[in-house]
């Protein structure tokens, strides 16, 4: 059963800040959803291969040719903060 400590840990992994009331609500909701999901454990799937993808595609390649990409100007166009033609970010903690 998932508890508030698990939710706090997962939120940190997901880089997601949850307020205290959100944390409580999320814990209750995830517990309910995961209980439903646990229905899968009724099945013995040990001999079943996994499906990651429905198409039988292997190594889709293209010619190794240089093509025009995004310009620096376009790449920076939507950035919340820019400095010296680069994305500007806050200092690391």
């Amino acid at each position: 059963m998932i508890g508030e400590d698990d939710v706090r840990y997962v939120a940190r992994l997901a880089r997601l800040r949850l307020e205290q009331d959100e944390m409580r609500r999320m814990t209750a909701e995830l517990a309910k959803i995961l209980a439903h999901i646990d229905k899968m454990s009724e099945l013995d799937t040990s001999a079943v291969p996994p499906t990651a993808h429905v198409l039988d595609l292997v190594d889709v390649t293209r010619a190794d040719r240089v093509e025009p990409g995004l310009s620096r100007e376009d790449a920076l166009r939507n950035a919340p903060a820019v400095a010296d033609d680069s994305f500007r970010i806050p200092r690391m903690g």
Partner: peptide, 20 residues
């Protein structure tokens, strides 16, 4: 994550706090 496009929380302090 507030770096390349879209919303960024204001005055968030360090990088990790800004992401979160």
């Amino acid at each position: 994550d507030g770096v390349r496009y879209g919303y960024r929380a204001a005055d968030a302090g360090d990088l990790l706090t800004m992401y979160e």
